[in-house]
Design a protein around this nucleic acid. Sequence first.
DNA 1: CGCCACGATTAAAACGTAACAATCACATCT
DNA 2: AGATGTGATTGTTACGTTTTAATCGTGGCG
Lengths: 331, 331
Amino acid sequence: MSIKDVAALAGVSPGTVSNVLNRPEKVAGSTRDRVETAIRQLGFVRHGSASTLRAGHSRTVGLSVIDIGNPFFTDVAAGVEDLASERGYAVILGNSSGSRAKEERNLLVFAEQRVRGVLITPSDEDPVRLDLLRERGIAVVLVDHPAERPDQCAVAVNDVTGGYMAVEHLLSGGAGRIAYVSGPASIRQCQDRRRGAGRALAAAGRDPLELRELAMPAMTAAAGQQAAATLLAGDALPDALFCANDLLALGVLRGLLQAGVRVPGDVSLIGYDDIDFASASTVSLSSIRQPTYQLGRAATELLLDECDNPATHAHQQVMFQPDLVVRESTR
Amino acid sequence: MSIKDVAALAGVSPGTVSNVLNRPEKVAGSTRDRVETAIRQLGFVRHGSASTLRAGHSRTVGLSVIDIGNPFFTDVAAGVEDLASERGYAVILGNSSGSRAKEERNLLVFAEQRVRGVLITPSDEDPVRLDLLRERGIAVVLVDHPAERPDQCAVAVNDVTGGYMAVEHLLSGGAGRIAYVSGPASIRQCQDRRRGAGRALAAAGRDPLELRELAMPAMTAAAGQQAAATLLAGDALPDALFCANDLLALGVLRGLLQAGVRVPGDVSLIGYDDIDFASASTVSLSSIRQPTYQLGRAATELLLDECDNPATHAHQQVMFQPDLVVRESTR
DNA sequence: CGCCACGATTAAAACGTAACAATCACATCT
DNA sequence: AGATGTGATTGTTACGTTTTAATCGTGGCG
């Protein structure tokens, strides 16, 4: 079941079989046919590990995301998976669940597997671990995160703009007090979206500091419901809520509706990501749309270019722009 | 950066380093410490491919799902990923998108990577490819699919019961004409749920054949919306709709509401899977709940047992039971 | 005091492939 | 006819680890 058996059956040397597998153009048509039928006859499949060991690099990439349960990331993953598999790469998936320890475990696995490259949406801002990968010759592309230095690739969506759009929209609806329901402070997206929100307030002649922030430990629907409970327990509800993602927003929405609060009558609500389910919710959700699938594809494109053409590869920082999607949940 | 460098620094032989890595109890405490500090000092990480090549097996498992965009499968994947990573296994993800060709490509990748085992929700009933894997010594566990033969592991939820529950519930609401909005006929789950639906009709003294079926090419919200359009174009709407999963149901719901049809006033609607978003939709969705995360965990448990204790391993078929969850979308 | 047993360590061989230099067959040109 | 070039194929070596059998040193026992 090895390349040697194929070689024996086809009456050639192992080297020729290897050539058929890796550089078919280098081998004469007739012998190529002979080898290929031998391969089929024996049901031979290349031993990826042996190949990796010898060649010094594998045909796999690692993908580390923050929450595989979030449709935003599954859309990204779909983009990654599609392009990678078109190019003959396998994807090893790692879900960090927002935990730094899990993220590090995943990166270790990637390093052990000698993946060709890593796509990562980092769960915090510490660049050290990634540099460690790069030192090992593993290409790294940041996904949904701007580059930290010019000598690296990154693909992101402008979160400051997105936050600005969201709050500008709330203000245009006449919102007075606005609160920002956010995720862990360590997540850059949350900070950037807040920054944009603050700028929108400033642009409207108001004090950015009046934006009240409620930082939840996770960005899930359950956390959103929790946030709603906290808001309801406070003195007065804000006029409008900007949630750092749609999962939070959907949870908040549920919590508010269950308490008899009307959306958008009593409170306007806007989410972020425009996941598929945002338009299907009880009160359809206004949101900030991101080109999610494209994000994954673009990141993979950069990564594979860096892997396959290291000589000509030029590091790039791609920045997509978000869109405002207005639905029922905002006035 | 190899085991040899570690050995040199620690003043031992490469074999000892290997023992520290794989059978720490076999090596004396003092030398173990010495080796471990050397490892840390050099930032050494084991070359997984070399290890796999020599040992004959890897520490990875393959997971092949039908639609990574479906929260049902991401929940399953979360269960798989959690347990696998607890046990030190990496997960290679393959998304077949319902396409047999893609599924086969993924299985080929798994075979090349010499994964230790494969978890698969097959997209059709052909067992041949899986036997091919088993012949290669790769353990296979069927996920959300009953075993085809007694000598294999499988984890499933009783879909016939689930279909029965759904239609029984619709009938108890006084439904007259019922239609079944399904996915590709090749997907077993769709067939089983239909079978259960038929039995429920029979149990109510009605003809199972009166269940009209609308088979969509995909099980997505978009396909569901398509289905709604088809239904609306027909002569008369059924009294009740049973959708083969929640994504279809959410799409149908949207399509019906947009056309001014009231749910459940004009049409009752029930989905399947009870994904998180089912309870958050415009009209909250009645559904059939499955222990999704548990499904993934249980399957992985069986797979790793088969991998790690091949001698004592006994093949098992686990069958979970579904639950009816009644919400607003049904009378 | 010599022998044995035992735990700890080592030397060496193998896993299956890729890549390079070397060889070969053959045809073209001088 | 001999030299030269070209394209196809092969032999060999190395990748980094695991594993087995062999070796080493130490202490207990007769």
